[in-house]
């Protein structure tokens, strides 16, 4: 409590001198910690595909990685306000996001997947979503993908901060849309009665976003270099094999 008060006072006194502080600290990476199996927590330990890949990038760059977890809806605000340097949370490259941020090379290639409660015969493909209630994660790219469908106005899209898998299993919504890789993983490993409905309906590529500033661009180039090395020496593929039993880092 005392330290907090001192912290608060220090913060206020630091306001003036802040811009003078050195840049080269650990690489600050934001993630939700709520996106199995990319980023999640078990017994207080942050784990997942995105953690492993980022750690490998940090090793390659010779920089320590400092993870900052926050609700997904807060991550881009943290990036925007300079509190983190990038987001490692399967961020899909979209036109909208490219207007605001610059992206590294993609490190995951995937597709959008409809998932329903086990035994649901009404929804067997993306076309069947007409007139149905569909859950997506708040701020995720899947909402935009659904809205691009020609019959988008007939879909009732519900956005979730988290726990949409559970609500689908409970039957509160007819389906949810997520990337195929993590959807398959959830069905395989978690005790929820869910199934994939039909094939994927859109290609997506995921990468790391950076602020469009000089420092951001330099960092992006460094990360790209590390990614290329990790791709060439097979590290990316082996991390992917470990989590998914298949290589999702190739197109």
């Amino acid at each position: 409590m005392k330290t907090l008060l001192i912290n608060t006072l220090l913060t206020i006194s630091l306001l003036a001198s802040a811009p003078l502080l050195a840049q080269e600290g650990p690489l600050r990476v934001g993630m939700s910690g709520q996106y199995f199996p990319f980023t999640f927590v078990e017994q207080d330990e942050l784990k997942g595909f995105d953690v492993d890949v980022m750690n490998a990038i940090g090793e390659e760059m010779g920089r320590e990685i400092q993870y900052e977890t926050a609700n997904f809806s807060g991550l881009f605000g943290m990036l925007e306000s300079g509190r983190i340097d990038t987001v490692a949370n399967q961020i899909t490259i979209t036109e909208e996001r490219q207007k605001a941020y610059i992206f590294s090379d993609p490190y995951v290639y995937d597709g959008a997947q409809v998932v329903t409660k086990k035994g649901n015969t009404e929804v067997e493909s993306v076309e069947d979503l007409k007139g149905k209630t569909v859950a997506v994660n708040l701020g995720s790219n899947f909402e935009a993908l659904l809205r691009e469908l020609p019959y988008a106005d007939q879909i009732d899209i519900k956005t979730y901060e988290s726990n949409l898998e559970r609500d689908t299993a409970l039957g509160r919504v007819d389906a949810f849309v997520m990337d195929r890789v993590s959807a398959s993983q959830i069905i395989k490993e978690k005790p929820l009665p869910l199934e994939l409905a039909g094939p994927t309906f859109s290609q997506i590529t995921n990468a790391y976003p950076f602020r469009d500033t000089e420092a951001g661009r330099a960092l992006r180039d460094e990360v790209n270099q590390a990614l290329a090395t990790l791709r060439d020496n097979g590290t990316l593929a082996s991390i992917s094999e470990k989590w998914f039993g298949t290589d999702i880092t190739q197109p």
Partner: peptide
């Protein structure tokens, strides 16, 4: 506070639940 990246009791719970799916 977890929306601001502060892992307090609720934030820690949300992340643990995401790992186990035992909401």
């Amino acid at each position: 506070a977890f929306t601001l990246g502060v892992t307090e009791l609720m934030g820690a719970t949300q992340k643990e639940a995401a790992g186990s799916f035992l909401y």
